[in-house]
Every structure is written in C-alpha cells, then in structure tokens.
C-alpha cells in the first residue's frame, strides 16, 4: 500500500508550500486568507459571519524571542502518520496533487491523527461540510487542492508578502534558500578584503559638526578639549577602533 503512495513521490519532487520562518513578521495574513479560502462565501467581508465559522488551517505561533513566529501547517507527509492511525479511514491522499485530505463526514473525533502528527497542525472544529453544524471534526490544511487544480497558488502563500510562505517545486525553493545562505556566508567572510564602511560614520560627522558649532559659538573652553573639531577629532578615532570588526 505505501509502495504505491511512495512511487508518486519518487517520480518527482512535490510542489509544496515551503516555510522560511526567519522571514515571518507575524502579520497572520496567511491565517486570514486560509479561513476566507475555506469559507462558503469566499468573501473577506462576509466569511466570518458564517455559521459554522470557517477556520484557518495554518497557525502562526510566536517564538520565545519577541517578533519571531512560525507559520505552521500540514507538511503532507508520505507516508502520513495521521493516515496510518485513522481508525475510520477518513484520512486519504490525493495522488495527483500529493496532499493529505480528511473526509469530515467519516471523522469520529478520536484525535488519534492529532496525537501522532509530528507538527501538531490538526485541530478540531465544526465544519460546514461536517456531519452537522455542532460536531467538531479534524481540520487541517488541504493544500488548497482546488486552487492547485486551477494552477493557482495556495491562499496562504499568495497572502504572504514577505516570502515566509512560498509555493513551488520543493528542490527549487530549498535551493533559493541555499543561494541566500551562500551569499551571506561569503559576504561575512569579506573575501574582497575591502575595509568595511564605518556604519557610524554619519553619527560621527554629525557629532563633530555639533562640537565645531558649539566650540565656535558658545563654548570656547571646549575647543582645547575636543581638538580642532574639523571632522577628524580624537573621539571618532577611538570609537572606530573600539567598534571595528577586525
């Protein structure tokens, strides 16, 4: 059984939504877009008034460090632990699109899928397509399979303005991250041996200017203390050697 599923993965690298958590600014646009995409109206002005209310399937949780966050969603594992443990066969895989789907009407709410999910991205809410409007069923990312069939980008990746969520061929997305890291590593190594620009140069010039003006206008006594005040005073040199990287 798993051989059949795996053969699809072996033939081609899947198209997927890849996460660059270091880009995430915590705006939660992906959550909003996901909920609207999974509403009946598909209208941002009306979706939240529906009953049952549509739910996001991507979850932005904050990190320990302020202003860090991670947009977490189903990774559509293959084989999928949730599929392997579901006692009612509610979890299936769409071979063509390579996404794991949950059939809401077959879900009995046992939460075994959530227990084994390595990413904790399965939650339980009533759904419009569920057995009835009150009963909570397993809810997770469906890969925006309808959009993908129309050759459209999944809603979360479309909403993301900072490329924290990007959609494409998995190896390409990973490679673009590798390119970024390569440039960062080589940039930090400073292989050109050019002296780095003094990032505080503007401040120093401003400070020198202030001292010059002060010395000329009001504080003749400071003239001696601060040197000539011509933009190359001793204060600047000291700062530069303290703060320099070499």
């Amino acid at each position: 059984m798993t051989m059949g599923l795996r053969s699809e993965r072996q033939r081609r690298a899947p198209r997927s939504v890849f996460v660059n958590p270091e880009h995430c600014i915590g705006c939660r646009q992906c959550e909003f877009a996901c909920a609207v995409e999974h509403s009946r109206s598909n209208d941002q002005f009306a979706a939240f008034l529906e009953d049952p209310v549509p739910r996001t399937r991507v979850h932005v949780e904050a990190g320990d460090v302020p202003s860090t966050s991670f947009p977490n969603r189903c990774r559509h594992c293959d084989p999928a632990p949730c599929q392997q443990v579901c006692p009612t066969g509610a979890v299936s895989r769409d071979d063509e699109m390579g996404v794991v789907l949950i059939e809401a009407t077959r879900c009995i709410g046992c939460a075994m899928c959530a227990v084994v999910c390595p990413f904790d991205v399965i939650s339980f809410y009533p759904l419009a397509e569920g057995p009835d409007p009150q009963t909570a069923v397993a809810v997770k990312c469906d890969g925006c399979i309808d959009r993908q069939r129309r050759h459209e980008v999944p809603a979360c990746a479309e909403a993301c303005k900072v490329e924290a969520l990007v959609y494409g061929e998995l190896n390409e997305l990973i490679r673009s991250g590798r390119v970024r890291e390569t440039r960062a590593v080589l940039g930090a190594a400073d292989l050109t041996h050019q002296p780095a620009a003094d990032p505080l140069a503007g401040w120093h010039a401003w400070g020198d200017e202030i001292l010059t003006v002060a010395a000329a206008a009001h504080m003749p006594g400071h003239n001696h203390h601060n040197g000539h005040g011509n933009g190359h005073g001793p204060a600047k040199s000291t700062n530069k050697s303290d703060g320099g990287s070499r």
Binding site: R28, Q29, V53
Partner: peptide, 24 residues
C-alpha cells in the same frame, strides 16, 4: 490585509499593534 479591510487592526499605541480575530 484582511484585518485592516475589516477595521479590526489598531496601531494607536505602543502596547500594540493589535488585531481582533474576526473568526473567533
């Protein structure tokens, strides 16, 4: 921005910025 389109984002102070989740 869906929050801004619905008017439920606020950046009037520096305890925020805040937004209300319209989906509850």
């Amino acid at each position: 921005c869906g929050y801004c389109s619905l008017g439920v984002s606020c950046r009037n102070c520096s305890m925020g910025p805040c937004r209300i989740d319209p989906f509850g």
